[in-house]
Design a protein around this nucleic acid. Structure first.
Lengths: 119, 119
DNA sequence: CAAATATATATAAGATATTTATATATACAA
DNA sequence: TTGTATATATAAATATCTTATATATATTTG
């Protein structure tokens, strides 16, 4: 498989929110699954590295946003991460915040805003 | 004036491209002007700090993407930054790249894509 | 007339986030 | 048996950004 350029440079700062947002949609996921989901849902445009992902997962766990559960699947341990109630709240807030930021940035870059619906 | 939350956390990584993109639209700008333009064009949503901006400007200059010109205005020195030909090319590339990233991220966060125009 | 605010550029120390490299381990395909 | 896919994780190095600070003029406010 060819490797898409994968501009990870822009990922800086958004990684945490991406993880929270995915977990808000999926109930529980394991690390590898998260990287695959991001790759698939963005057509290879965004690729998470494990070196970046795991520290984020561990930090979110420390902060009380995530709970983990280890299951043995096919003879290997698989560590699932799920949002706590508090984490779900954080996910909502951060996703909205990031959405606002993305809109602002797109305006700045010259992408026209959708016209308000005519009354 | 109240200070909008200004989620600078998401700015990480995009700062360089923002600066290049603004300079592509404006021919030449000075540092303070750049911070004001970003603030205005994003309704206060994005606020650059000087501590982040100047290092980026200096680095772009070092890399040959920018040229500077100091003018005295109202008894004070004002340092203008403008894209070199090479910088203009970089700006084009990076702006497109960031645009692609922003779209990918919005899809990931569940923002629906605009429908393709009906023929 | 003094103080605050807006304009203007810049650096340094410290904090944080991310990349790159590495270690470990199983299953399956070539 | 070599490589690829699956799976988690840490450490060192680097890059980036925040916060604090310095300097200086002009204008507004009290």
């Amino acid at each position: 498989m060819e490797n898409t350029t994968s501009n990870s440079e822009y990922l800086r700062g958004t990684l945490k929110t991406i993880v929270l947002s995915l977990l808000a949609e999926n109930k529980r996921m394991y690390g590898y699954e998260i990287t695959q989901a991001v790759k698939e849902q963005t057509n290879g445009e965004i690729a998470l590295t494990f070196g970046a992902l795991y520290p984020v997962l561990h930090k979110l766990e420390q902060e009380g946003a995530l709970l983990t559960e280890s299951l043995e699947v096919d003879g290997r341990l698989r560590k699932y991460y799920a949002l706590t109630q508090q984490g779900a709240e954080t996910a909502r807030e951060k996703t909205i915040e990031l959405g606002r930021f993305l809109n602002a940035l797109q305006n700045l870059l010259g992408v026209p805003e959708p016209l308000p619906a005519t009354s």
